[in-house]
Write a protein that binds this DNA or RNA. Structure first.
Lengths: 237, 237
DNA sequence: ATTGTCATTATGACTAGACATATCTGTCAA
DNA sequence: TTGACAGATATGTCTAGTCATAATGACAAT
């Protein structure tokens, strides 16, 4: 672990990463600079090329560097801010803050989805889906409303679940692991019905999280989650 | 690239990842299962341990697996949904959709921050900060309001910028690369002043993105961005 | 001026083997 | 029964080297 006389704090590839980040910060390598190749850096840091390669690969994944074969490695010119949001299952989210979780099933039917939902999932005209509406509670108080459509062609078993005991979300996470999803966040004004459910005045600003989930190419479910005023989603970089 | 008779689609470590994901999905290895060790998998897939190691390491970073020395590798029991939001600079965000970007500086002063801001950044009582308010436009129409506080103790140069030509955000990204940040999203009702700026009715639901940035331990800036109704932030997993 | 060919070059992936280190387990002694 | 210690084990990291592949730039042919 001989890394150019550095105090060896942590693994060598991390020492390399810290040194590179420090050079970028201190404008030794300003944005846009082409930095030395892996072989040169390996020589400088006194380690194998694979070690440098790992350090650079991870920095590239983080968006700090841009790598291209033959062209070399450059410091990213216009870095994008990335926020990693962790959206846990409602039950855990509530339990983490030490409150009691509960949920009410408000509505359940197998019916034809509205055109917008059908198109979003790319399903055939005339398809019927499982539609469920639900209110999640923390210590009895409204925490989140859920309006979910499930593609029964992809998950026919979903038709048989007792949604009053297991929430659809939990069932889906347990039975359909590793799906890919698109999440979008926006602000919406509470309709009269939503206001009544969430216990806030009509027109109040709600945080609206919508998520559509696929397993491979197969659309599974799309859900709209509404949160009462004051709710925040926090992410760190 | 001999990977157990597989059609070699992509790199070996990716083939391994796909196979592992498929086993988890198909309940060959249900959540909680301890999967075979790296050496066994290397033998099964006919590749080196380093290749298996990389495949598993990345799946662990993605939250699919949990790894512990001596204890082995297990399929994560309660996977968390992660949404990766990319929040580009306003200028790019507007330009990407083919609209013309513009911004107006509404306010600029060096003054004492409100208590909440001061505490959020962990600064001393009585500190003075650069305070700027700004309206960003797309094709002339209001796109985003910005209310920013900059820690002049950390970035004294910021006092000298001409904020009418360069927006504070762009200057900070260019001059202070690689800072860490905490981002939070919520919904807020438009005040009368905000409504006037954004061209929406008072009380309209706005998406509120707040971000606080540090360079190491040093707080740099905190900003509140408000977006008119209809604005969405989209993230993929 | 344009197109095609080809060597060069830097990254990307991989192997076989080594040592490091956290952690679990069983054993033995206080 | 409890605690301390030693061994086993699985992951974590690293090396030195090989082969693969994408992109570039120079040069030649059209």
């Amino acid at each position: 672990m001989t890394v150019a006389g550095c105090l060896p704090k942590g693994a060598a590839y991390q020492v390399v990463q810290r040194e590179i980040l420090s050079r970028i910060r201190n404008k030794v390598w300003p944005p846009g600079t082409r930095i030395p190749g892996e072989i040169d850096l390996a020589a400088e840091f006194g380690c194998a090329r694979a070690t440098i390669s790992r350090a650079l690969r991870e920095l590239a994944e983080a968006g700090v560097l841009e790598r291209k074969r033959r062209a070399g490695t450059r410091v990213t010119l216009n870095p994008v801010r990335r926020a990693m949001l962790e959206i846990p299952m409602v039950r855990q989210q509530v339990a983490e803050t030490g409150r009691a979780y509960g949920h009410d099933l408000l509505f359940r039917a197998v019916e034809a989805p509205p055109e917008a939902i059908r198109a979003r999932l790319g399903l055939a005209v005339g398809v019927r889906m499982l539609h469920a509406r639900c209110l999640h509670r923390a210590d009895g108080r409204p925490f989140q409303t859920e309006d979910r459509w499930i593609n029964l062609e992809a998950v026919p078993e979903a038709a048989g679940i007792d949604l009053t005991t297991t929430s659809a979300n939990e069932w889906l996470i347990r039975e359909m692991p590793l799906s890919s999803a698109e999440t979008s966040l926006s602000a919406a004004a509470a309709t009269d019905a939503e206001a009544a459910l969430l216990g806030c005045p009509p027109g109040a600003p709600l945080l609206d999280i919508e998520r559509t989930t696929w397993l491979g190419d197969l659309p599974i479910t799309t859900v709209r989650l509404l949160h009462p005023p004051g709710f925040r989603v926090v992410g760190r970089v």
